[in-house]
Design a protein around this nucleic acid. Structure first.
Lengths: 336, 336
DNA sequence: CTGAAAGCGCTAACAA
DNA sequence: TTGTTAGCGCTTTCAG
């Protein structure tokens, strides 16, 4: 690294004192505009860039937040990160991401590094039921927030999409389409999101005075394969469904594919809606798959706002869920 | 932020001097093991963690590398990041990622922040033909490497997958299967990767004394939709192909889907191979799609090694390409 | 309006 | 073997 110029270099170059140079660059104190410009010119000439490390050391604040992701594909983390970044940037805070890939060892290492770098806040992200800082690591009151993720520590601040609300939205959409037998094909029951989405599905049906038919609720894994298999099972029923809420877009897409092969048409024979609004999947499906968007970017933004408030010393209510939205495509509405 | 204990606090707590505490914690100098242990105990008791900012300020090295990603989905960046991280960690270097999402403004901001934090190295990643540090930003000799990405600056260090070699591998695989009419359905021609992969395809054919039939080379976009359309076009030829090299897995999957609908069987009627080995896509295809893996994690590791050498002052040859590997699935080999 | 000096937390050279 | 001190680059009083 070619030695970067220091503030002292700038001062010398401009023929002023260190303090003066500092004032000029920080617009603090009162300076003759002549001196100010002289300093600024020198700074530019030398390619000066203040050393954040020194600044942070001085003020005891790094203006930096660390993001630890356990979502190894980045599919969920990226939009969250963008939202976070936008909001933090407004406050002059930098966001750095570390990838933990669900490896506790790695995660511990990262937390350690971030603490050493004296970050002013910490964000954890990535689905994981029982998230919590690696044991033994004392975060010492560092503002911490879990986004799209949860901690089992009492009092921790978590921000999640409203899974139940999303599923309700999906189911109500199908009800509004006049569907009477609505199935739910979803992922593994040990995911909280699966249970919540089922609850939303149930609420919507109950709200419309309809009972939940247990034959129409199928748990499996998150794959397209499972979606295909589930469709065949549903079709084997005495009374097959006329609509399906899928637990995610991959399952939804599997359902649609199996339908095509059986000569069934969506939405005429069965309307299908997914969850996640993963565009690569949803848009490539035939017909394109309606879905529930978790508004992850907005989730990130809200996380950033809360974190800022926490950094300012405010106490924050422990957990919140943000609304999902409905994205209609041809699998439920041919005119979409 | 509850004030973290400083080294001085530890020293006081242990009843020794500042210098002694430092020696104890850094295993430097010679200390009585008794004092050493006393200090370590105090450090643990107080939850002491050295302030990297101060350390970095002192030694003029931050032991930190910044990664700037332009891959907004993280699909390519994540594995690269893992590889990088592993190698850098061995050298006690932390890796922080910033997301630029192909927004030059954002990117500039991030470079700025990273320079301010005095990172010891910089990595750019994410497909983009004409990458280069945002104009006017003087990196001042900071070790910089482009992975899965390129800079047009002369002498810049770039590390890429061997796209041509990958396509050659794919084509040779099909040739080895005894296929005679091999098509190439790929993405937009203005991608360098598209041109290189085509070149690899050509080389393999030429190497087997076969001519390239222009009718069998189709350019489109990277979507499944294009794959489906391309298959129909190929089937309309007087002499349809008996094998296809797809430019990526999405196109490959589109080809397979359209085949199913026409009642064609892979690999019997047409063998299909993709590129990227994006497991979500490749494994969900029917039959599962053979593909070319770009070994992104290895790419990241090699980038880390090169960066370390650069940080040590070594000069590095400007550009290198790392081999891809063949992943055989049922779309070319039913026994796979 | 500008300069000098202290100190953020740490390491390393030098004294004791 | 341990203590003292200077200084990394910056900001911020307090003098001049």
């Amino acid at each position: 690294m070619s030695p970067r110029p220091t503030l002292r270099d700038v001062a010398t170059h401009a023929g002023v004192s260190l303090g003066t140079a500092s004032k000029a660059l920080n617009k603090s104190g009162t300076l003759r505009s002549e001196t100010r410009n002289k300093v600024l010119a020198s700074a530019r000439a030398l390619g000066f860039r203040p050393n954040d490390l020194a600044q942070a050391l001085h003020r005891g604040q790094s203006y930096t937040v660390g993001l630890i992701s356990n979502d190894s594909f980045g599919r969920f983390t990226m939009p969250i990160m963008e939202g976070l970044e936008d909001v933090l940037h407004e406050a002059g805070i930098a966001l750095f991401m570390c990838n933990a890939t669900d490896d506790p060892e790695r995660e511990k290492r990262h937390i350690d590094q971030l603490l050493g770098k004296r970050v002013d806040g910490l964000v954890f992200t990535g689905r994981r039921a029982d998230r919590r800082p690696a044991p033994g690591l004392n975060l010492g009151g560092l503002p911490t927030i879990y986004v799209f993720s949860q901690s089992d520590e009492p009092g921790s601040v978590c921000l999640l999409p409203d899974d139940a609300g999303g599923a309700r939205l999906a189911t109500e959409h199908l009800l509004a389409l006049g569907r009477g037998r609505i199935a739910h094909v979803t992922g593994p029951q040990d995911f909280e999101a699966v249970r919540l989405r089922h609850e939303g599905y149930r609420q919507a049906l109950t709200g419309a005075d309809r009972a939940v038919d247990p034959d129409l609720v199928l748990y499996g894994d998150w794959s397209e394969h499972w979606g295909r298999e589930a469709l065949h099972r549903l079709c084997a029923l005495a009374q097959p469904p006329d609509a399906i809420v899928a637990g995610n877009d991959q399952i939804g897409r599997g359902l649609l594919e199996a339908m095509r092969e059986r000569g069934l048409v969506a939405p005429d024979d069965i309307a299908v809606i997914g969850f996640d609004n993963w565009s690569v999947m949803a848009e490539a499906a035939r017909p394109p798959l309606s879905s529930i968007d978790m508004n992850l970017r907005a989730l990130g933004e809200e996380a950033g706002r809360r974190l800022r408030r926490m950094m300012a010393g405010e106490e924050i209510a422990s957990t919140a869920r943000l609304p999902c939205s409905l994205v209609v495509r041809a699998s439920t509405d041919p005119t979409a």
